[in-house]
Design a protein around this nucleic acid. Structure first.
Lengths: 193, 193, 193, 193
DNA sequence: CATGAATGAGATTTCATTCAT
DNA sequence: CATGAATGAAATCTCATTCAT
């Protein structure tokens, strides 16, 4: 399996750094290779083409979010706690990896519509877990049982996304993690029963 | 004033159509010129460069949102009503101009970080008006006076944005305008006192 | 019409020279452009891609052969004379343009099978005229009426082609034009009645 | 001697198949190695480089033609019969190995001028035997004693070559072997005394 | 004011060959 | 003898912008 070889992850990480430091369109394959300390051609032993690198970056990194969220869902007591810890986790992971935050919130969005559609399908898994939490809360009485789940999900994710993007655009000037509880509070107000 | 000449608006509208129909990266200056029925070179008599066209597209179109919002603020009775009508207006304008919706929600986001930063500064005026509504509501007791305005604003705008983007990505399959009240309801729950 | 503009022929001629002097695979678009005294990009205002240049080279140059042959067929008295003058013309044109001879006999054959198939369809028109001469001669009793026209044509063209290719491979060391009558004589012996 | 080891021939045969099935430019060293069931690097224990493989393909396969022709010369009664049997043999060998026919008539000609010059020098031995037959016939009165041997040889070989190439290009649609006598007849007419 | 032909910089990807194991 | 992962040079084509008419 290619993605188990050390160079696979090495290239993924190099891509994140190269994109964060140079911008999406200035992160040429040669720059990624250089950052990874390998030859240009070696990239193509592990990835079909440049787009494949970018999708893989998203898959690998989004994988962390998904795994964490699955853990949270498994261990959380109430739906409220699960949602709260999901937001906290999302903020924490990106606050602790500014390169990754820049890449996911700003740079990767410059990709073509085709690439973004693929990225979106990766994202869907994450959103499905979010839906699980919301529906559970609606059933057990923690959240408003009459709300439209899709819209609630869009509110939760849209707010998280906008909050983090603004933080990145403001060049990480303020502490992101401490805003998490406030974001959580507002969102919970919106959806609680 | 350049922007009062007929060809100025003609090019702006041509750009929206060209981008919506071809996608951001396939909307070459020559295509915009052709759509506008003028020569490539003529574009440069009205715009400094391609980026200038795109920023102007955003400025002009966002201008409609801002004017409408100013009107809403002037005429609205309560803060709650103002916020409600702002969301309704935002949804209505884009639901009625799918070309514009595609361009603002999907295509223009493929632009470079630099361009997006400029677009964001245009957006700021709109967000400042939103802040006005929120602060007014906090002062007059309609909204939670202890909430963080910035976060509340990000929730409102992030939710609107995410909702519309999803609608565009789903190829306008459902009716956007009728979801506005549900979105408003959730957001008001979140911020109300 | 693109092929009437002066730059069209200018590029075709530059391509012949660039290919003859550098070889097929070393005749990069940039070399052709330089030889033509224009910018690389200008090539693409006149040709769809590199392959299009090469096909056009063949079409334009083969056009001369075809036109000459049509003239010969129109004015020639006997089939024997027509065949004789066709061979003479073929040898003369290439003997007088060694660049072209190198390109058609050696370099262009390195092109991909796809390109060669296209080149072949251009060639077919020439071979159809040759067939006309042969059939006419079979009907009027100058040539053997029982021979297989396809094979006769392949003999005539194969011999011409092999003769000229050998001459080019031997770096034009001997006089090509004076061998024409001998070639003609042998071929006529082969097919005469 | 390298060419006596089993892997030598194994690679040669793999090359013919790989080229015939994939085309000259798509027959990468790695494909040839895979076809031969060995590792890429192993190729370089038996051949200096890729060009060396291709020349060797031609040498080995042309060797069959040469051996057969030597046999024919040794056993044939008249020059006419020898020529006749040479043509028949040439057609038969290629008609019975379509992979080889495709490779020699179409694919290998896409090689660089340099490679083709080397291939030609391999071909020379075959052509020298053909010259022998022609000269013998001129001396013993079977062939026209006044003809130019070089041109006669080019006619014979050019006709054979063109005939077979056309057959390959037409995707072996008709029977090649039965055309041999007709080709022979026309050629003999051309050179007989 | 308007035109549109011409410019030219710049990046992805392939594949023959090597060499440490 | 054999392997196969790694190398890195090299070329087509696009498109924003200019400027002579």
């Amino acid at each position: 399996m290619k993605r188990d070889k050390p160079k696979y992850k090495q290239i993924i990480d190099a891509a994140v750094i190269a994109i964060a430091e140079n911008g999406y369109h200035q992160a040429q394959v040669s720059k990624i290779a250089k950052q990874a300390g390998i030859a240009d051609g070696t990239i193509y032993l592990y990835f079909k083409n440049k787009e494949d690198i970018l999708i893989s970056v998203f898959e690998e990194k989004m994988g962390v979010f998904i795994e964490n969220l699955q853990e949270i869902i498994k261990n959380g007591e109430s739906s409220t706690e699960k949602l709260s810890r999901m937001i906290e986790n999302h903020f924490t992971v990106l606050a602790n990896d500014r390169h990754l935050a820049t890449v996911t919130q700003l740079e990767l969005r410059q990709s073509s519509k085709e690439l973004r559609l693929k990225i979106n399908s990766v994202l869907k898994e994450y959103l499905k877990l979010l839906d699980e939490i919301l529906i559970e809360g609606m059933v057990n009485g923690e959240f408003n049982p009459n709300m439209d789940v899709r819209i609630a999900r869009q509110m939760v994710f849209g707010t998280i996304d906008e909050t983090i993007t603004t933080w990145v655009m403001n060049e990480y000037r303020y502490d992101l993690i401490t805003t998490a509880p406030k974001v959580t509070q507002l969102l919970l107000n919106g959806i609680k029963n």
